[in-house]
């Protein structure tokens, strides 16, 4: 057996850059060819009658922004959790860049609906956690974290505990934390669901800004149609139980997006398309429940 040391050393060398893209650099930190997600005939069963996800197939290109849209309880989180590695499908497979996904890992950053910042760690140490786990020494991890806090505009809160932050600020820290390992894919499960409308809009614009600079694949779960259309390259609509993917709608709006586009014919048309699908779907689910009950 011959040992090949050259292959291993390249892994550590690309972590020397600790400054995240800040808008001025215009540099994409990721080669657009990584972060490809292939969901192939995935079904998930939690063992109570209907499948939580049924035969979902979806191909997500590197750097693409996908919104997963659907009524509450249809299996959006579950499908995303198969990509995250928290849930194993009973059939089908999820692959990232050709590799089957078996467990959670730092190549897939997560932002959760509930605030998931560690309350016992300072804001800075929350963001530094990923780099620390990736093997950076503590001080280096902290300086990486500082750069990411700067990116989301919360440097002044570095030494505070998360409990003093507002909901929106917490989610910004959550995004910074998820990105601090430079993951290939960012998984966001209704990250702005608990925010008020204004904050939400600001957060959406910030997110698109960050996404365009990182060139990272994003899967974003929401049940807000406006949000989905505003953010996504493609809106994937999911049906109620059993959760199937029923539509894959391409959003024809140029980038960078601005709020003014919300009244453009293209936006309105796409939104209407989603709305029709969802309301038909909700009606069907309602009829089904009534038939059962």
């Amino acid at each position: 057996m011959t040992s090949d040391s050259t292959g291993a050393s390249t892994m550590t060398e690309n972590t020397t850059e600790i400054i995240p893209p800040m808008g001025k650099t215009g540099v994409n930190h990721f080669k657009p060819e990584t972060g490809h997600i292939a969901i192939d005939g995935v079904s998930v069963d939690f063992g109570h009658g209907a499948l939580a996800v049924s035969g979902a197939s979806l191909d997500i290109q590197p750097g693409e922004f996908i919104c997963l849209l659907g009524p509450s309880g249809c299996g959006k989180s579950t499908l995303m959790n198969t990509v995250a590695g928290f849930v194993q499908p009973i059939s089908g497979a999820v692959r990232m860049d050709g590799e089957p996904i078996k467990a959670p890992g730092l190549d897939r950053g997560m932002v959760f609906q509930q605030h998931s910042l560690f309350p016992w760690k300072t804001v800075l140490d929350n963001v530094a956690f990923g780099p620390l786990m990736a093997g950076q020494p503590r001080e280096k991890a902290r300086s990486t974290a500082r750069a990411f806090l700067e990116m989301v505009g919360l440097s002044t809160y570095a030494k505070r505990f998360p409990s003093v932050l507002s909901g929106g600020m917490k989610q910004r820290v959550g995004i910074a934390r998820a990105l601090a390992n430079y993951p290939k894919v960012l998984l966001m499960d209704e990250p702005f669901g608990a925010l008020d409308a204004q904050t939400r809009l600001v957060m959406q614009e910030n997110l698109l800004q960050i996404w365009s600079e990182f060139g990272i694949t994003v899967i974003f779960v929401t049940h807000d149609i406006d949000e989905a259309v505003f953010l996504a390259d493609r809106v994937v609509v999911m049906s109620a139980s059993p959760g199937r993917l029923i539509a894959d709608i391409k959003v024809d709006l140029e980038r960078p997006r601005s709020m003014a586009m919300a009244t453009s014919p293209s936006f309105v048309r796409t939104k209407q398309q989603c709305l029709d699908l969802i309301s038909a779907e909700s009606k069907r689910a309602f009829e089904m429940q009534r038939a059962v009950g």
């Binding site: 995250a84 590695g85 928290f86 467990a103 959670p104 890992g105 730092l106 897939r108 950053g109 997560m110 959760f112 509930q114 998931s116 910042l117 560690f118 016992w120 760690k121 956690f129 990923g130 786990m133 990736a134 934390r177 998820a178 390992n181 998984l187």
Partner: peptide, 23 residues
């Protein structure tokens, strides 16, 4: 949710115990 967050940030069993469960 803290355990999941830690896992997705690359934490193993020992790190989860030290950074999540114990605190």
């Amino acid at each position: 949710v803290y355990v999941r967050a830690a896992k997705s940030l690359g934490a193993g069993r020992a790190a989860i115990l030290r950074h999540v469960v114990l605190p």
